[in-house]
Computed example of a mutant assay.
Amino acid sequence: MSGIALGRLTEERKAWRKDHPPGFYARPATNPDGSQNLFSWQCGIPGKEKTLFEGGVFPLTIDFSEEYPSKPPKCKFPKDFFHPNVYPSGTVCLSIINDDGDWRPSISVKNILLGIQDLLDAPNPKSPAQQPAITLFLHNIEEYNKKIKSQTKLYPPPS
């Protein structure tokens, strides 16, 4: 099965290098021996303009299994990333990357990253992943907005 996954990831990498949204980055991690690990990608998702996330580029790791594209990858922000749909571990809760949700093998890395970018500014209160963030989002939006603005400053664009 890993041959299928490796082939698909090789194609994903080529497609990304040819055409990706401005401000995003996505590249395979580097193994200790210097080779590329196509099963683990280091990504950056820019905050959309005119949102609380504007000005930040948020680091995300995408880990693919040997069952990809039959099974979705795992997407993680840094531990304790503050967002209603991100678990304290950093794992993103989004239907298009959920085995039991809307995952389809035709969903590309580009689709995943754009979907997560949309989720940043438009949390889904029906699928909360962490209590503090969803509580503030629903009951104290001013404090929620302050926390998001503060967090955004922690992730300036790479130089």
Results as ranks from 00 to 15, higher is better:
P28D: 11
A29P: 02
T30K: 15
N31C: 08
P32S: 06
P32I: 04
D33R: 03
D33V: 03
D33Y: 03
G34K: 05
G34F: 07
G34M: 02
S35L: 00
S35H: 00
S35Q: 00
S35W: 00
N37R: 08
N37D: 14
N37P: 06
N37V: 05
L38I: 09
F39N: 09
S40N: 07
S40K: 12
S40M: 10
W41D: 03
W41H: 02
W41S: 06
W41Y: 03
C43T: 02
G44P: 14
I45C: 06
I45Y: 05
I45P: 01
P46G: 07
G47N: 09
G47I: 02
K48E: 14
K48R: 14
K50N: 12
T51C: 03
T51P: 07
L52C: 08
L52K: 06
L52V: 03
L52A: 10
F53S: 13
F53T: 12
E54A: 15
E54G: 06
G56I: 14
V57N: 15
V57C: 15
V57Q: 14
F58Q: 11
F58S: 08
L60V: 15
I62S: 02
I62H: 01
I62P: 01
D63W: 00
F64T: 14
S65P: 13
S65R: 13
E66H: 14
E67C: 03
E67T: 13
Y68G: 12
Y68D: 11
Y68P: 11
P69W: 08
P69R: 12
S70Q: 15
S70H: 14
S70C: 09
K71D: 02
K71C: 00
K71A: 07
P72S: 11
P72G: 13
P72E: 12
P72D: 12
P73E: 08
P73A: 05
K74W: 02
C75H: 03
C75Q: 08
C75V: 06
C75Y: 07
C75E: 02
C75R: 04
K76M: 13
K76G: 08
K76V: 03
K76L: 11
K76S: 15
F77R: 08
F77V: 13
P78D: 06
P78I: 01
P78S: 04
P78F: 03
P78R: 04
D80T: 12
F81Y: 10
F82K: 05
F82Y: 11
H83G: 11
H83M: 10
H83T: 09
P84V: 08
P84W: 10
N85K: 10
V86Q: 10
V86L: 07
V86W: 05
V86T: 12
Y87V: 01
P88T: 00
P88Y: 01
S89H: 04
G90M: 02
G90Y: 06
G90L: 10
G90P: 09
T91P: 00
T91F: 02
T91N: 09
V92P: 11
C93V: 03
C93I: 08
C93K: 01
C93E: 04
L94M: 05
L94N: 07
I97D: 00
I97C: 01
I97H: 01
I97P: 01
I97M: 05
